[in-house]
Design a protein around this nucleic acid. Structure first.
Lengths: 151, 151
DNA sequence: CATTACACGATAATTATTATCGTTTGTCAA
DNA sequence: TTGACAAACGATAATAATTATCGTGTAATG
């Protein structure tokens, strides 16, 4: 146990250094909660889990560090469209092209998309109905802005 | 003008009847704002747009009717995962299987998924980086609950 | 081991969404 | 038509999710 938790500590120290982040106890425990979660937890769920090990931690700290991890690329969000509901009145099946920076969405017509396929096994009793494909990248105007930041 | 708006009114009256919804002026204007929106608007954006035609409308009415349209299947949400942020610490590319009712997420390994492909033209300057595929359906336990409701 | 910038915890503020409630309006049948 | 009733409306309060602020504490660096 000392062994494996020691390994994780060393790994996380190294990971933090590579991303230019201070290696704090809170961060380590939050990160461990994230990587060991089997489901796709919410910040609130991480907060609950971390509280078992650091009862005094603040919810704000959990949010702040999750954001830090996201910006550092140590973590992903399941959807680019949480936060505010976005609506789509086109009922015909179609797909989306999304800019990962400004999160603007462009419709792609169904006939231009060859669907993905899954060859593995589905969970028992799951009835598959459709699929959503999101093509993700960076749009022209966001790319221009980002390159001007690095010069 | 009288012609086309009359067409829409008649169409919407019919649509409402088919879904068992009262055909109110507010609903018609909200629905028209939704179908004519080129982007994928938020409830707030719809509210702003509708206010130009019905200055006295309440934001709550817009939310309520959007929810009504969603439940009736007259409208879709862009993502099943808005509302609360959901996190994913798996950095390797992989895809998701989602139950449209309980919105639980199961990871699908990348090797089991043959990706989609897009044969159309991308917007000028858009740099495509990756794709997210969401396989959507209904899980065993939600299917059981729904069938027990109809019996 | 002292300095300093960054992180922490507490808490207030903001944003997004839902609920409540009294009034108004669409629907349906007489 | 019109009158009854259920459903929808507008105003507003309440809740949920997230972000900002600020004084104190601690990791990194030399």
């Amino acid at each position: 146990m000392t062994q494996s938790s020691g390994d994780f500590t060393a790994m996380f120290r190294d990971l933090s250094q590579r991303h230019g982040l201070a290696c704090t106890h809170q961060r380590q425990v939050i990160y461990q909660a994230l990587v060991t979660a089997k489901d796709h937890p919410t910040p609130e769920a991480i907060y609950e889990s971390v509280r078992a090990r650091i009862p005094s931690i603040s919810l704000g700290t959990v949010y702040k560090n999750i954001k830090t991890f996201l910006e550092a690329g140590m973590l992903n969000e399941v959807s680019l469209h949480h936060g505010s509901l976005r609506l789509d009145a086109r009922l015909e099946p179609h797909h989306h092209l999304v800019c990962r920076v400004c999160r603007n969405i462009v419709d792609l017509d169904e006939p231009d998309v060859a669907p993905a396929s899954y060859t593995g096994r589905l969970p028992r009793g799951f009835r598959l109905e459709r699929q959503n494909v999101e093509f993700i990248g960076i749009c022209a105007s966001c790319a221009k802005q980002q390159s001007s930041l690095t010069t």
